[in-house]
Amino acid sequence: MSARIELRHVSKVYGDDPHRALTLLAQGADKHQVLADTGSHVGLYDVSLSIPAGGIYAIMGLSGSGKSTLVRHINRLIDPSAGQVLVDGEDVLGFSAARLRDLRRRRISMVFQHFGLLPHRTVLENVAFGRRVRGESRRNAQAAAQGWLARVGLSGHERDYPDHLSGGMRQRVGLARALASDTDILLMDEPFSALDPLLRDDLQSQLLTLQAELGKTIVFITHDVEEAFRLGQRIALLRDGRLVQEGEPAAVRAAPVDDYVARFVARVSGADVPRSTGSAPG
């Protein structure tokens, strides 16, 4: 199966002189040395990933590991300092502004940790936003939005404003908004991190149920190892901007490449981790 999304040697450095920072990194410096020497922050260094079509691909790491930076490269909310980003075999870095917009409108949608809902619009208008942006009529967009709101269990809240909803409900609005665009790829940046554990569990289940029906390619960012193991058909682990290990959860658990990964996965004993209820084609 060919990769739906592929990152090749992607590096991201924040600072005035990314080139110098990259040279230092190539010579083996770590991000702390680079910061001390050049004042540049290393977001990612030399990350190569191949994300297959269909299924949930979990990328985990602690805060500062670069996982949120990484996911934003896929729809180019962030441009890399070096490397390539391919979606369906096309290098998105070469896209014109118009093609990039089209990519975001029809092929990739995204769910955010802090929801990113428009506070001045109703729940229904928020869910219809993606379709409105790409030029659909209000009526069509809202009809589709209505359907997705029902799918996430928020019927009856169409005319509420986001601020009147609880956090869990808001994120379901965020999810419905992303799904309403009917894109094949769904990027989820720590979507459940801001929610309390019980609620998180509910939403994870709901996501798995939906995914079982939809079979999208989901890139799921999390700092929660249990969440990653519960949802991901494949898992990638980032540390300090570098990819540490990548593979199926069982394989990662069975053979951690180093102590860091071992400590990480130790908290998830195999028996406790429920496998994905939805069997996604992978």
């Binding site: 990519l103 975001r104 995204m110 955010f112 990113g116 001045h120 990027l187």
Partner: peptide, 29 residues
């Protein structure tokens, strides 16, 4: 205007005008 909201709008492929008229100006109102 909340950068998170702007980023979210951006991720849906808004043009500059859509961003300005649909997101930024209403929130700066």
């Amino acid at each position: 205007v909340d950068p998170d909201v702007q980023e979210a709008a951006h991720s849906f492929g808004t043009t500059r005008w859509q961003m300005l008229l649909g997101v930024q100006l209403p929130l700066a109102w």
